[in-house]
Amino acid sequence: MTTTPKPRPEILRYTAFSADPAGGNPAGVVLDAAGLSDAEQLAIAAELGYSESAFLTAPPEGLGGEAGRSFTVRYFSPKAEVSFCGHATIATAIAFAERHGAGELLLSTQAGTVPVTVTESADGTLRATLTSVEPAVHEAAEKDVTEALEALGWSPSDLDPAFPPRIAYAGARHLVLAAATRARLADLDYDFERLATFMTALDLTTVQLVWRESETVFHVRDPFPVGGVVEDPATGAAAAAFGAYARELGLVPEESVLTLHQGTDMGRPGELRVELRAGDPRVRVGGTGARIADPVA
């Protein structure tokens, strides 16, 4: 007796935070992951090789939201499951909207409930904006900052003293370190295994490296060795965490819109819009997206 193999789900490839498939951060998207085991989802993420891939299934009971637009979402890097991923959320929302129209989505993640709004401009461009879970900002121990700098090959003098190191959270934990110069940020050559070991011990998803160009414009880079990749090209979860960090430390107005440029030094430029609203601790992160053509067989 032969067993019929389980059909493979449709696996989409999208970039987030750029309207150009060659820019932004690529993510795998599976809009119907029903029946996929953890191992199968991890295998798909590893096969794609992107920093994360997102998998949608039916929502948990009581999630709410519009029928047919509420889901459970799980995120896998090539090496492990992660609690939340901003760029894969944006990519998923754009992919869903291309098939079902712009509007509201409600996503149940391991970090909490994440609403996403997709709008369509007059020229047909889709833009997705996620609302983070409630963020938190914590002190970073001096010994941990020292270890991070040594793993990066940075010295204390490479840091901008106006931006004290902190661990920031908005669905995932990130160590925020600010470079004193754009040249320091551009020169990224770190000890992969040492930084991965350090980040694993502190449960960090990325290290958010940032340089301030102007009052509301920043350039950022995110080493991601714990996910099996050297660098993440555009990091929505870190952008949300950074927005919370900058507001809490009084580095930006309580109500403001920040522009984060990421991926330029990797040849995959992207732009992340970070919105802070007075009286609302949550952070909104938005951007465009684009379908990436499937590889030729």
Rank of each mutant, 00 (worst) to 15 (best):
T264G: 11
Q110K: 15
T92Q: 01
L63Q: 05
Y245W: 05
L175P: 01
V220G: 05
T205F: 11
R284N: 12
R166T: 03
A196S: 10
L107S: 10
E271A: 14
A179L: 00
A238T: 04
D144G: 02
L209N: 01
V210P: 04
A278Q: 09
S18Q: 11
S214Q: 03
T119C: 01
R194I: 04
A238S: 15
P135F: 02
G171F: 11
R74M: 08
G65L: 11
T264L: 15
G101D: 04
A22P: 04
A27S: 15
N25L: 13
R166F: 05
P9Y: 02
R74L: 04
F55P: 00
P59Y: 05
V207A: 02
A180N: 03
P78C: 01
A39Q: 07
V118M: 02
A240F: 10
S132L: 14
S18F: 00
R282S: 10
S77Q: 08
R282L: 11
R13N: 03
F192P: 00
S155F: 00
G62S: 12
A16W: 03
D189S: 14
T15I: 13
T146K: 11
M266F: 08
R127A: 07
A128L: 12
L202F: 00
E120N: 04
S37H: 06
H219K: 15
V217E: 14
R69K: 07
A95S: 10
F17Q: 08
A179R: 02
F76L: 09
W154Q: 00
D123H: 10
A80H: 15
T117H: 11
K79D: 05
P59V: 11
F84N: 08
G23K: 09
G287A: 12
I44G: 01
A168C: 14
A45G: 02
Y190I: 14
E255R: 13
Q262Y: 09
G250T: 04
F192T: 10
M1V: 08
G279P: 07
A196K: 06
A140M: 01
Q110H: 14
S157D: 13
G112M: 12
A93N: 09
G171I: 13
P281E: 07
G289H: 08
G250A: 02
V82K: 00
Q208R: 10
A183Q: 14
A136V: 08
G23C: 05
T92W: 08
V207M: 07
R221P: 04
G236M: 07
P26R: 02
T200F: 08
S108K: 11
Y169L: 13
P7W: 04
A102G: 05
